[in-house]
Simulated assay, not measured.
Amino acid sequence: MNLFIDTNVFLSFYHLSNDDLEEIHKLAVLLGKGDIKLWLPNQVKDEFQRNRENKIADALKKLKEQQKKPQFPQICKDYPEYEEIREHQKQYEKKLSSLIKKVTDDIAERSLKADEKISELFEKASLINPDAELILKAKLRMEVGNPPGKDGSLGDAINWESLLLHIPMGEDLHLVADDKDYYSVLDENALKDFLIDEWTSNNKSDVRFYRRLSQFFKEHYPDIKLAAELEKELAINELVNSSNFASTHSAIAKLQKYAEFNKSQSNELAQVGLSNSQINWIFCDDDVFSFYKSLLNNHGHDIEDELVEKLQAEIIQCETNGED
């Protein structure tokens, strides 16, 4: 699945946004899995770096504005609620000052969570470096007035031309942008007709438009609520499909950090531990044995009786062999 995210969407994670960083985390997991290919024109990286500080400065300004003290008329001061409010206000001011300091320190060290998550995405993305010919196409696009793009600005035109050139013919594009240069004046949740027609004509495929990353996830991955759950499912799938001892140990290492599995997951793990020879043959290895013993102790009540009996037999056999 081909995905493009416009610069303004990345920058929104530093500011007031309806999406939170969990969306970025989920995307990073899916990129690692290979389900999604994120196309990243170098123009987007440059725009992001140019505008990051301004977005952060504006967000920090709005945060500091929360320090303004409310004014109370004199007639309020004889009521007990006034003293309670003042006490809560002092606690609020103390916590807010602490928050501002921590945020300011992280900004200086470039260690904001948004920095970490977006850097991870950029590292996993497929970078597009525009050449002179592509830039000429973008300039022509701007000069004749074709979208996307603002007067005198090449950025959006370069990004669009990059996508037209590099995304394979016949493959759909999923485009996330909260920018009037992309969306229709008739329907702000739809792409401009000109861009739809151009994409369909040139790439013989569809282009789907979203204003927010959460809209993309809602449509295509509605069951994914948290990235951690997705990572757990991927680790289970890795164990299920293990084709050698090394991949078994790798999957077990990932699964050992999870304390909770639902009923379906517990039964799947139990079944594969018995049926996959690349797991069962090394069942008595310390890590595999420890994982399945813990699974049985903590989730045995969710596992089918027949599987429980077989797992218990495997565990007893390992313990017996260890005593010999």
Rank of each mutant, 00 (worst) to 15 (best):
D105R: 12
A108K: 12
E143S: 15
L165H: 14
D115P: 07
L134F: 08
N146I: 05
K64F: 07
I85H: 03
H88T: 09
R141C: 04
D115E: 07
P80V: 05
L136S: 15
W160P: 05
K90R: 14
G155M: 08
K150H: 07
A125M: 02
E143L: 14
Y92H: 12
A114E: 00
F72R: 04
R141L: 06
K150Q: 14
S153P: 07
E84D: 12
Q89Y: 14
Q66N: 14
L96P: 03
I167H: 01
G152Q: 10
I167K: 05
G149C: 10
R141F: 00
S97C: 11
L163K: 03
L154W: 10
K61G: 02
S119G: 00
L163W: 09
S162W: 00
L63Q: 01
L136D: 14
W160S: 06
L164D: 06
T104Y: 00
L163A: 09
K68D: 02
Y82G: 13
N159M: 11
L154Y: 07
A132P: 01
Y79K: 12
E116Y: 11
A59H: 01
D106T: 09
G155I: 08
I167N: 01
I158K: 02
L154K: 10
G152T: 05
Q74W: 12
E123T: 05
Y92F: 15
K102E: 07
P130N: 05
R110G: 09
I158T: 10
G155C: 14
R141P: 06
L63F: 08
K124Y: 05
S111C: 02
L154F: 12
G145N: 10
